[in-house]
């Protein structure tokens, strides 16, 4: 079977292993209406028990949930330096809240953002912020419900790596990257709007 990964406009082999946390024991209740900003959308974050019980191999390239990574950050210093550790964030997680806890985001050679439902457009803002505001320069990967018809927007939002959903053909999905030739507005890949680039 060919690879599901599109990296820099080509099908590529995936060298990374995604480390899944154990499932939560109890159902976490939604806190709708509570004015804690990142809770408004209702998703639960990992609980302490899940964070502590997440296990991962001692060597090789692994992608860790951000909270697991923060928990083990000191112990993982060497592996981070060896570019063996990637970050996994969910679209409902607040980047601002953990970015301060990492001294240099570019020590990590990969950040992957998991989109649970393709229609969850938060991933675009997260990509944009990671690139533009936090100046992340390395591989930015979309994982989860990643499909052809969102690739163009993902690319424009700063993603250069796409792990296509298992049941879809990456060779077909890659065509989505070139749906449009010259977009109007400035974004991440092409930062200037059309009117500042070409004479109209």
């Amino acid at each position: 079977m060919s690879s599901q990964l599109i990296l820099n406009n080509h099908i590529a082999n995936d060298e990374w292993q995604l480390i899944e946390p154990p499932k939560a024991q109890e159902e976490v209740k939604k806190q709708a209406g509570k004015v804690v900003i990142f809770k408004i959308t209702g998703e639960a974050s990992l609980n302490q028990d899940q964070i502590e019980k997440t296990t991962f191999p001692k060597s090789g390239k692994i992608i860790l949930p951000i909270q697991v990574l923060l928990h083990h950050q000191k112990a993982l210093m060497d592996r981070i330096a060896k570019k063996e550790i990637g970050i996994w964030i969910e679209t409902h997680e607040e980047i601002n809240s953990f970015i301060d806890k990492i001294d240099d985001i570019n020590k990590f050679s990969l950040i992957s953002v998991n989109v649970r439902k393709f229609a969850d457009g938060r991933i675009f803002s997260i990509g944009n912020m990671l690139r533009m505001k936090y100046k992340f320069k390395n591989e930015l990967r979309a994982i989860g419900d990643v499909l052809r018809d969102q690739l163009f927007f993902l690319k424009r939002s700063g993603f250069n790596s796409f792990l296509i959903r298992k049941d879809r053909d990456a060779n077909d999905a890659i065509l989505g990257l070139t749906d449009f030739s010259t977009p109007y507005q400035g974004a991440v890949d092409q930062q200037k709007p059309a009117w500042k680039i070409i004479k109209r």
Binding site: F124, F153, L154, A187
Partner: peptide
């Protein structure tokens, strides 16, 4: 023009 296919606000 700005809002047409604005990548960040597509969904």
């Amino acid at each position: 023009q700005w809002s047409t296919f604005h990548p960040e606000f597509a969904l």
